[in-house]
Design a protein around this nucleic acid. Structure first.
Lengths: 325, 325
DNA sequence: AATATTTTGTCTATGTTTTGTATAAGTTTG
DNA sequence: CAAACTTATACAAAACATAGACAAAATATT
C-alpha cells in the first residue's frame, strides 16, 4: 500500500528520534559526517524532517544493527536500503539492487484493477472492492479512475446482471461501496466557491443507482456542486430538491427499459415541474429506449463519458456568464 | 455566496478554549505566531470562532501532545491533521485520554450540533450538513457522535417527516450525506481481522434507509464487519448476501408500518431462507408494529441504542467462542 | 601479536529558538 | 460596573544548535 507521502507533515528531531529509534545526537552526527539525511531548517535553524527521513533513519538503524558500517550505507537510496534489509533476512548477499519501477501504461493498470474489482464484486467481497478502489484512485488519479476503471466496470456489471451472472444484490453492494468512496473523491478536489449546482437522481421505478452515482462523481470532478438523492424518486420530490437548492441542472439516470410508460410519464412531469430554466440531462444504459419522450421534451441523449463532460463544461460556462456578467 | 464560512456558529474565545482544550492565551499565541486559526472579529475587536476552528484546535492540541511541533503543523489543513492523528493513533492506541470533555458538556455540544444539523436538513443544504457532521465527529468522537447526535437526529427527522415539515426528499438527501460519512467513521476504527460479519438492509417495501444506516454504523463501531446493502430488497437477495458473505447476523430496519402484510411475509421468508444459524435482528421505528410476526419467528425487538449494542456484544462473544474454541 | 589509525557512538559546554504562561494596561460587553 | 476580552511585552523551561572532546570498537599496518 502506498502510504500517503505527506509533504505537509514535518517533524522536529525529537519526534524523529523517537520514531526512528536513533538518538538525536546520533541523527545529527550521521548528517554531519555522512549526509545520511538532509533536513530543511526553520528560520531559526532547527532541523525539520519528513516522513521519508524517518523511514530512512529507521532502515539505517536496522542495517547498522545488522553489522553494516554507517559510512558505507548512509548515502544509499531508500529503495536500496529496503532491499538491503530484505536480503539480509534471507541470505548475506549485498548486491545493490537496481530498483526500477516498471513503467506500465495507465490503461494496463486500469484493466488490471478492473479485473480485480470485478472479481471482488463476483465474490461479493465489499472490503476487497473498497480496498481495490482506494488503491486505484491513488495510482490512477481521480480522472483516470473514473474514465478507465469505474465507467467500464459499471458497464460490465450492467451487462453481467442481464445475463444472470450477477444478482441485484451484487449491484446494491457495489453501489454501497462506491457511495462511501465519494467522500475521498470529493475531498481530492474541493469544489470552487460559486460552482453551479446540480441534482442527481433516478426517476420512480428506476431502482439501479450505479449510473446516477457515476454521473454524480463525474460532475463533481468537473467542478459542480452535487446534491445526490439516490434512486427511485417521484417527480415532485426531485423537482422540490431542484427548487430548494436552486440548482441549474438536473441529471437523471435510466438503466432499465420497461414496457409500461411510467418513466415516460415521470419524465414529462419532471420537465413540466422544473420548467425551462433548469437544464435536464438524461443518461444511462436504457436512455435511448425513451428517445421519443426525450426529444419531445427537448432533452439530448448522453452519448457516453466525453459527451457528458462536454455538456457539463458548456453548462458551467453558461452559468458563470449569467452569474458574473 | 455562502461558502464554507459558517455564518451560523460563532463562539468567543472562552468557549473555544473549553471545547478544544487549548487555553485562551495559547489560542491567541498560536494565532499570532503561526496563524493556526483566523477568527473574524466583532465590531469591538473580540475574536469570533467557528465550529471548524474548534475542531482544528482540538486536533492541533492532540497532535502537539503526540510530540509534533506546533510551528510545523499549525497551518496544515483539517484533513491533513486528521490524517496525522489517525496515523499516530495506530501506534499508541492505548493512551489514557488526558483531555476528555465531560459527559455533561458532550450532551450540550451534541444538542447544539443537533440543532444546526436539523436546520441544514430543513434548508436542504447538503454541504452544510456534511460540514457539521465532520466537525461533530472530531469534537465528540465516533461513539458520542452516533449516540448523542446521529441517533436523536434521525429520530427527529422521522417524526418531522410524519408531520409534513419534511418531505421524503429531505430524508434521501440526509441518507446520502450520511452514507458518504461512513467512510470517515470506518477509517476511524478499522475493523479487527476475524471480526464477525453482518448484513444490513431493509425488506422490500421499506424505502427508508436511515435506520439501517444507523444500525450499520453502530455495528461497525462495535467491531463488526458490515456489508451494507441499502433499502428495499427482496428476501431472496438479502438471503443471498448472507450466504455469500457467510455472515452470522442479519439486521433489518423497519421504519414504516403498512397495513398490507408484505413486510410480515418477507420477514417469514427471510427467516426461512437464512435458517437458524444466522441471527436475525429487527429494529426501527415501526418494528413494534410487527410484534406478532417477530415473536412468531423468534426475533427480539430492539429497544434502542444500548439494547442493540448489548446484543451485538453478546453475538460477537458467541462468534469468537465458536471460531476460536 | 602488537601497535597505529579510523570509525562510531556518546558526552559536554555554551548559546539560540521555540513555546507555554504570566503580567500590565486598556477596551468591549451585557 | 464587573466580567471578559484586547494588545503588548516579558519570562522561563524545554528543546535544539554548534563545536569539540573522548573512548570503545573496528580496521589497518608494522
Amino acid at each position: 500500500m502506498t502510504v500517503t507521502n505527506d509533504d505537509t507533515a514535518q517533524y522536529l528531531i525529537k519526534t524523529v528520534s523517537k520514531r526512528s529509534g536513533v538518538k538525536s545526537d546520533l541523527v545529527r552526527a550521521w548528517e554531519r559526517r555522512y549526509q545520511a539525511v538532509s533536513p530543511v531548517r526553520t528560520s531559526g535553524g532547527h532541523r525539520v524532517y519528513t516522513d521519508q527521513d524517518i523511514a530512512r533513519l529507521k532502515l539505517l538503524n536496522q542495517a547498522t544493527n545488522n553489522g553494516h558500517s554507517i559510512s558505507q550505507i548512509a548515502q544509499l537510496s531508500l529503495d536500496d536500503l529496503k532491499q538491503l534489509i530484505k536480503n539480509e533476512s534471507i541470505t548475506n548477499a549485498l548486491e545493490p539492487a537496481v530498483n526500477e519501477t516498471s513503467i506500465r501504461d495507465k490503461y494496463q493498470i486500469a484493466e488490471d484493477y478492473n479485473n480485480k474489482c470485478y472479481a471482488a464484486v463476483l465474490a461479493f467481497d465489499a472490503q476487497a472492492l473498497e480496498s481495490h478502489f482506494e488503491n486505484a484512485i491513488v495510482e490512477l488519479g481521480s480522472e483516470a479512475f473514473i474514465e478507465l476503471l469505474l465507467s467500464p466496470l459499471l458497464s460490465k456489471i450492467g451487462e453481467r446482471w442481464k445475463t444472470g451472472e450477477l444478482r441485484p444484490v451484487h449491484e446494491h453492494m457495489t453501489s454501497s461501496v462506491i457511495r462511501s468512496l465519494t467522500y475521498i473523491l470529493r475531498n481530492n478536489n474541493p469544489c470552487p466557491a460559486n460552482a453551479p449546482r446540480m441534482i442527481v437522481s433516478t426517476p420512480i421505478g428506476q431502482l439501479h443507482e450505479l449510473g446516477a452515482l457515476l454521473a454524480a462523481i463525474m460532475a463533481e470532478l468537473c467542478g459542480w456542486q452535487i446534491t445526490y438523492l439516490g434512486a427511485n424518486l417521484p417527480a415532485e420530490e426531485i423537482a422540490a430538491a431542484v427548487k430548494y437548492t436552486n440548482a441549474c441542472a438536473l441529471t437523471l439516470s435510466i438503466s432499465f427499459a420497461s414496457e409500461d410508460n411510467i418513466v415516460a410519464k415521470e419524465l414529462r412531469r419532471i420537465k413540466k415541474l422544473i420548467g425551462n430554466d433548469v437544464t435536464l440531462i438524461v443518461g444511462g444504459r436504457a436512455a435511448s429506449h425513451y428517445q421519443g419522450v426525450l426529444s419531445e421534451i427537448g432533452v439530448p441523449n448522453i452519448q457516453g463519458y466525453s459527451h457528458f463532460k462536454e455538456i457539463l463544461k458548456q453548462l458551467a460556462d453558461q452559468h458563470h456568464k449569467t452569474t458574473n456578467g
